[in-house]
Design a protein around this nucleic acid. Structure first.
Lengths: 265, 265
DNA sequence: TCAAAACAAGAGCAGTGCTCTCTAAATCCA
DNA sequence: TGGATTTAGAGAGCACTGCTCTTGTTTTGA
């Protein structure tokens, strides 16, 4: 699942381009005992990403400056262009890095919950996303906030890490459904128009799901709602002091949302 | 009510700047027969805002450039500093402008629905926000997306226009409750911890509401969920072609959310 | 009429992304 | 081992940004 990360952490740094490799590819293409120059190059790229993350956290994506990173790296600005094609490329590196960090946190949190406790897994997922978002607001904004103007993430590199959370979430819902733990007859029943049903059918086929349309549709709503609540908190849409009990508020929202999708427990 | 705005406006609100005033305020505070210089100044500020909106729509907030606006205005860059203190000030102007445009759209949409059709009013509000967001994605991103790094909106000028939608939304919910059209016993019942109840009580007092805690809490969730769904769509979190039936998807989400808060109809 | 206020222009500073050229160092290979 | 080749880094430079300061010019109002 974390191929993209692997690829950039070791082998692919070499060419300065990140490729999305399967683990087979990555293990094959990674002799590990590389030349000193290659290791130095990999280390430099790792440093650039680390410094980029620091700048991102401190000043946000819009203020991410290659020149500043170069200064921190102790090198002249043009030198970093040997390692990173341009600013957008650095953004892409940070994007993939953040997606995978979030995905790892979510996976760890969900896996700490008993296999049959689907509602608990759902809440663990929500809480993990929120905790990470509050801890790394700039990274969260990069992933889920306004698109950076003029920047288009390269789908072939970001899609897999970028869909880890939603794939995990529908996985929980679908596993609950297969286990009979998902109430498919949630009230009020809302009719699903044919056009929407077609979209849901495509999703079901692609992700190999079993849950029926109403559950899938509610799952999508719950997905957007979880991130909506987190975004409001992280982006400061609640005023400064409207909600002092933010933990309790979010916990409440998760409880209600788990009912919306029909998860009991 | 809108003093803060008025103060910055003086002559300037004349210029097509949208402010939240009662008609009494507006007729009282605006002599209208100003000197030619004052009218020219107001017109220039109006032009700056208009050009700023165009740049915002075309290139996004991060790329909003005072120099580019100056060029379009046919004037040297330093000249615009006579009218706008700095880039952040222009952002604030555009922020207030956008908040009020959205508020006006929402108000118009809600008021077109029969007074007793609370569920219809809720859906009209949601659809109005979404329609405006899709039409003005850059403005929507400015209001509800990632915060602009280093920019802090001046609360005394933005709070009133910035809360028009949520005030309207809870107004609908509360009116429904008072009319007996809000089911306060929504299932599943979720316990509200004391800390959250205290926050809700403060909100109830400030906005003079009658609805009980469970309804208020669910109202908050519905609020964040509506914007979460819209943000996902506008910010491209749904992939390019996961959902072809976006109108139907959002309509479905509104229907489910109206059930979440207990609005029947 | 004349001083004061407002205005526009221009130069300038410090910062940005990015390209280009040049030198020095590391690596490869015959 | 020595020469050819590749790579790293430095530096200059271009076009752009926000913003300040000075210098004339125009408009205003008493």
């Amino acid at each position: 699942m974390s191929r993209a990360v692997l690829s950039f952490v070791d082998g692919a740094l070499y060419c300065g381009k990140l490729v999305c490799m399967t683990s087979a590819e990555s293990s094959a293409a990674k002799p590990k005992a590389t030349t000193p120059r290659e290791r130095a190059r990999a280390q430099t790229i790792a440093d650039i990403i680390r410094l980029g993350r620091e700048h991102l956290a401190l000043h946000g994506a819009a203020a991410l400056s290659l020149r500043a990173v170069a200064r921190d790296l102790g090198v002249v600005s043009s030198a970093v262009y040997r390692y990173v094609e341009n600013r957008d490329e650095l953004l892409t590196l940070l994007l993939i890095d953040a997606y995978n960090e979030l995905g790892d946190h979510v996976d760890a949190a969900v896996e700490a919950v008993p296999e049959k406790d689907f509602a608990g897994q759902f809440r663990a997922l929500g809480n993990a996303v929120r905790a990470w978002a509050v801890r790394e607001p700039a990274s969260y904004a990069l992933l889920f906030g306004s698109p950076v103007p003029g920047y288009q993430a390269p789908g072939e590199r970001t899609t897999v890490p970028g869909t880890r959370v939603i794939v995990r979430l529908v996985g929980i819902f679908d596993a609950a459904y297969r286990a009979g733990a998902l109430n498919a007859e949630v009230t009020p029943a809302v009719v699903i128009p044919p056009a929407l049903a077609a979209d849901l059918e495509a999703i079901r086929a692609e992700l190999n799901l079993a849950a029926p349309d109403p559950s899938l549709a509610r799952g999508v709503l719950v997905w957007t709602s979880v991130f909506g609540a987190i975004s409001f908190e992280v982006f400061g849409q609640y005023g400064a002091d409207t909600f002092a009990a933010r933990d309790e508020l979010f916990a409440h929202q998760l409880r209600v949302l788990q009912g919306v999708v029909g998860l009991q427990g």
